[in-house]
Design a protein around this nucleic acid. Structure first.
Lengths: 116, 116
DNA sequence: TGAATATTAAACCTTTTGGTTTTATATTCT
DNA sequence: AGAATATAAAACCAAAAGGTTTAATATTCA
């Protein structure tokens, strides 16, 4: 079995450190956005950016180690695709706080309701 | 008006860099979790951690600059509380990807359904 | 006024991050 | 076999992160 429990209930500080850390760089978020469209190779992913290909390669490694990207090596070409499970982990962590902004919105709605 | 548009529709790379960066450290996530219970002072927030108070003070500054924490200075005491708007921004960004894991779950459900 | 308190600021150190360029390693094509 | 291609690895560098300890700044209390 993998390092993590099958369902993302366990709190894994290291994992969340990596996931949020991976999301904290705009190039890596842009890479995820690109992979949201379709899988792509490292070269294809690197092309639109102004940084060097090795730089993009490193970003992809970070995304991979955070569990956000899967890599499928086919000969000399590496095909990357989005792995949403880690994204779901981050979303779940944030979800614990959703009650707060829901409350805020409810309070706001209530306040508006009571306006004459 | 503030630096950001009133509704968190605008994509603000700097802001998301800061928010996800702030969330990428376990101590800062723990501070947010603590503030989810109730507002608290810097000293109260620092007490449970093994790092020094100045270290916690710096973490709180980072959370504040990411818009995740509000600070209310009252004499020599700084009262901190959760500001969920930035959390909602992060959640919204992740939300763009929710379709992916929803699709994954649907595909899985469909697959299970078709099992004999 | 003077001591205690809450917090920040400053100076410093080590490790990590994010980039570069150059080199190496496979793999594919001719 | 040999050239071209896709990617990683290595070596290097500057800046940022994260921590420490010691000082400074307000504020409160006796």
């Amino acid at each position: 079995m993998s390092r993590r429990a099958s369902c993302a209930i366990v709190e894994d500080d290291d994992h969340l450190d990596r996931v949020f850390g991976a999301l904290s760089h705009r190039i890596r978020r842009a890479l995820l956005a690109r992979l949201g469209e379709s899988p792509a190779t490292i070269g294809e992913l690197a092309a639109p950016f102004e940084v060097s290909l090795p730089a993009v390669s490193k970003h992809l490694r970070i995304l991979e180690e955070a569990g956000l990207v899967k890599r499928d090596v086919d000969g000399r070409v590496h095909h990357c695709s989005l792995d949403t499970r880690a994204l779901a982990d981050a979303e779940q962590w944030l979800g614990h706080y959703r009650v707060f902004w829901d409350e805020t919105l409810e309070a706001l709605a209530k306040h508006v309701e009571q306006e004459p």
